[in-house]
Amino acid sequence: MDKGYEKEKFETIKIKSSVAKRFRNYCRIISKSQSMTLKHMVDFFELNGVSPEDNLGTTISSLKRQITQRTNAVIAIIKNIEKIHHKPTTAILQSLFEETAHLEKEEEVFDFQSPKLSTENEELDYFKKVYRQSQESNQQRIQAATMLFKKLVFVRNSFGTGHYRLNISKEQMAILKQKLTDVHHDNSTEIGS
C-alpha cells in the first residue's frame, strides 16, 4: 500500500489499452504502484516546468552534451575576443610605457645654480639703496609736478568757462617726459648691483 494514501479511495481513468499496458510495464520496472508512478510523473513535469510534449533530446545525457558544447563555444568566443582585442591593446600600452620610460632616462638634468648667499648687512644695504632711489624718484616727480603747476596760466574765454594753459616749450615738454619715463628704469633688481 502507498504510504500516506491508505485511506483514499480509487478513481477510474479511461485510457487506451496499449497505453495502459505500457504504463503498467513501466510501473513494474521502477517497482512503484500505478498511483505513485503517475503522481511522480506529474510532480516532475510541474517541478521542472516541462510539458510532456517538449522534446528534451534522446536522453538527459544528450542534453548535458549540448550544454557542454554551448559552454565550450562561449569559452572559444571569449578567448578569441581576448586574442583579437585585449592582447594588441595591452601590447600597445606596454610599448607606450616602455617609450616614456626610455624618454625619461634621456632627458637632460638641468642643474639650477645654488643661490648666492649674502649677509644681513649686504641685504640691508641693498634695501636702503633701493629705498633711497625710490625716494629720489618720488622727489623728482614732485619737483616736475610743481614746475608744471607754476607754468599753468588761467585763460578766460569770452564765451563759456575759462581753462588752464601750460606755458612751456616743446623742448621743455620732451625733457619732462623723458625724466618721467626714465624714473621707472633707475632701480635694478639684482642684489649688489
Rank of each mutant, 00 (worst) to 15 (best):
K14T: 15
K16Q: 12
S17L: 07
S17R: 06
S18C: 09
V19F: 12
V19E: 14
A20E: 13
K21M: 09
K21Y: 05
R22A: 14
R24N: 15
R24G: 13
R24V: 13
N25Y: 09
N25W: 10
Y26R: 07
Y26T: 14
C27T: 10
C27Y: 01
R28I: 14
I29E: 12
S33W: 03
S33R: 02
S35V: 14
M36V: 06
M36I: 07
T37E: 01
L38S: 04
K39D: 00
H40W: 14
M41F: 14
M41R: 04
V42I: 11
V42G: 01
D43M: 02
D43I: 06
F44L: 02
F44G: 07
F45D: 03
E46W: 01
L47M: 09
L47C: 06
N48D: 03
N48G: 04
N48T: 03
G49W: 08
G49D: 12
G49T: 13
E53P: 00
D54A: 10
D54Q: 11
N55H: 13
L56H: 11
G57N: 02
T58N: 10
T58P: 01
I60T: 08
S61M: 03
S62T: 13
S62G: 05
L63F: 04
K64D: 02
I67P: 00
Q69L: 13
Q69A: 15
Q69M: 13
Q69G: 10
R70Y: 03
N72I: 04
N72K: 06
A73L: 12
V74C: 10
I75T: 14
I77Q: 03
I78G: 01
I78A: 12
K79Y: 04
K79D: 14
K79C: 11
N80I: 01
N80F: 05
I81V: 14
E82H: 06
K83C: 08
I84D: 14
I84H: 11
I84P: 02
H85C: 15
H86N: 05
H86Y: 07
H86F: 12
P88R: 02
T89D: 10
T90G: 14
L93H: 13
Q94P: 00
Q94E: 07
S95L: 09
L96I: 15
F97Q: 13
E98L: 04
E99D: 06
T100S: 07
T100H: 05
T100P: 01
T100D: 08
T100F: 01
A101S: 12
A101M: 03
L103D: 03
K105E: 10
K105R: 10
K105I: 12
E106R: 08
V109N: 04
V109F: 11
F110T: 15
F110H: 10
